[in-house]
């Protein structure tokens, strides 16, 4: 607070910023406050709502798991090696963030749709993407993998390479060095990447709705209720989702603070 004394600039900037803070906080607060506990309770008791929420959480978790298995190794390569085309790959990893998510959904449909080569290939082993859970998972994966890959890459980069070198001279193979030195030291960053990616997956609507309107994830359910029955019917579900996201967000902040300590 001391900084505000005799500093008019800081006051002006703070007032401008306050408008934005109000703009974020008020709608969220309004939604949460408008819905009474009994309304939320009713919403939770609905089978459809529970199914949508648990589907959202588990599909996002599955997408995160896939990114963990495929994306963390990629992040390590990007952090440690230099090769032609590296900048291109790094840009490519970021692209899902800037592409409109409905467009991302269309693009995925082109590759994983029923008529596509991959769609048919997976169809042979019984995996369907359109209007099915695997479609939801790949949609979430596509739009949120950047968060995990980038966080893991930055985590690996922050590990001093000489620690790995010393470990080698002490008799550790590269495999052992990765698991005993690099990964534990980058773990905090990777964990915050996991939470960010998972949270981003939960909120995905655009790409998911194109690949799989049904089974419905929570954001699609809110949309559907709003379209078909109106605001008052959509609100309890929206409130529930906001509250859950808030909890996830708090966990994320808590983990982030630990990284600095």
């Amino acid at each position: 607070m001391k900084q505000f004394r005799n500093n008019r600039l800081l006051w002006v900037f703070a007032l401008l910023g306050a408008v934005l803070v109000w703009f974020i906080a008020w709608p969220l607060l309004r939604t949460v406050l408008a819905a009474g506990p009994h309304m939320l309770w009713e919403a939770i008791q609905e089978e459809e709502v529970r199914a949508a929420i648990s589907l959202t959480f588990s599909a996002s978790a599955a997408a995160t798991l896939i990114a963990l298995i495929l994306g963390v190794p990629l992040a390590y390569v990007l952090a440690r090696a230099s090769f032609p085309g590296k900048a291109l790959i790094e840009a490519l990893v970021d692209i899902p963030v800037v592409v409109p998510h409905s467009a991302a959904g269309i693009a995925l449909l082109m590759v994983f749709g029923r008529q596509s080569f991959l769609g048919q290939l997976f169809g042979k082993v019984g995996i369907r993407f359109v209007s099915a859970v695997p479609g939801i998972i790949i949609a979430m994966l596509f739009v949120s993998l950047s968060f995990l890959v980038n966080a893991a890459r930055d985590g690996f980069r922050s590990v001093d390479e000489r620690l790995e070198r010393v470990a080698r001279t002490l008799g550790a193979s590269p495999w052992e060095v990765f698991w005993q030195v690099t990964f534990p030291l980058a773990w905090r960053s990777i964990l915050s990447g996991i939470i960010m990616m998972w949270a981003r997956g939960l909120s995905e609507f655009g790409a998911v709705v194109i690949l799989a309107y049904n089974p419905m994830v929570a954001p699609v359910l809110i949309f559907e209720r709003f379209e078909s029955y109106g605001l008052s019917y959509a609100r309890p579900v929206a409130t529930l989702v906001i509250l859950i996201s808030l909890v996830v967000f708090l966990i994320l902040r808590w983990v982030g603070r630990d990284v600095e300590a």
């Binding site: 001093d160 000489r162 620690l163 010393v166 470990a167 001279t169 002490l170 008799g171 550790a172 193979s173």
Partner: peptide, 18 residues
């Protein structure tokens, strides 16, 4: 490979596992 050489290495700023 380094792990088969049995050479000890000490860096200028020590590089201890934090």
């Amino acid at each position: 490979p380094p792990e088969d050489r049995h050479l000890g290495f000490v860096y200028q700023d020590y590089a201890l596992f934090p």
